[in-house]
Simulated scan of single mutants.
Amino acid sequence: MRSALSRAYRGVCWYLRELTGESAYDRYVTHVRRQHPDAEVPSRRDFERMRTERQEKDPRQGFRCC
């Protein structure tokens, strides 16, 4: 019973992280470390800033109502 609840809890957590975009930084860090091992990994704050700027430049990247 506990393992089923544990799996369900992990599944819900994974789903919410994907839904909110919380896991985007983790995927980006993994990508940079694999593809560009000598490159410096930006901080989460810098990553979010770059992501927001990219979305604002190209409306197809994300929906902004305001």
Rank of each mutant, 00 (worst) to 15 (best):
D46A: 14
C13S: 07
R45S: 09
R45D: 04
R49W: 07
C13N: 10
V29K: 02
W14E: 12
K57D: 03
Q55C: 04
L5V: 02
Q35N: 13
E18D: 02
F47N: 03
G11H: 07
S43V: 09
A4R: 15
D58E: 13
E40S: 15
R51S: 07
G11W: 01
P42D: 06
E53M: 10
H36Q: 13
P37S: 09
D26F: 04
R44K: 15
L19M: 09
P42Y: 06
R49V: 06
Q55N: 08
S3K: 14
Q35A: 15
L16Y: 07
G21W: 01
F47K: 09
R64E: 01
T20P: 01
Y25K: 02
P59S: 13
A24S: 13
R34Y: 02
G11Y: 03
T52I: 06
R49L: 12
G62L: 03
R2E: 14
R10I: 01
R2A: 13
L5K: 06
W14K: 13
M50Y: 14
P37M: 07
R34W: 01
R51D: 03
M50Q: 15
R44L: 14
T30H: 06
L5C: 08
K57L: 14
M1R: 10
V32S: 05
T52D: 14
S3F: 08
M50C: 13
P42A: 03
Q55H: 05
L19Y: 11
P42L: 06
H36G: 00
R17S: 10
L19C: 09
G21Q: 04
D46G: 02
R34D: 10
D38C: 03
C66F: 06
R2D: 12
D38I: 01
F63R: 11
Y9C: 08
E40V: 15
A39Q: 14
E22C: 04
C66N: 11
V41G: 03
Y28G: 01
R64H: 04
A4S: 08
R33M: 11
R2G: 10
P37I: 09
E56T: 04
H36V: 01
Y9P: 00
S23L: 13
M50E: 07
E53H: 09
S3A: 12
A8C: 01
R33K: 15
D46L: 12
Y9V: 09
M50A: 12
R33A: 09
T20M: 00
Q61R: 15
R64L: 03
R49D: 11
R7F: 05
E48W: 12
L16G: 00
Y28L: 07
T52S: 14
Y25P: 02
T52Y: 03
Q61F: 06
R10K: 13
E22T: 08
V41L: 08
R7G: 06
M1W: 10
K57W: 00
M1D: 11
G62P: 00
C66Q: 10
F47M: 07
Q35E: 15
Y15T: 11
C65W: 11
H36K: 12
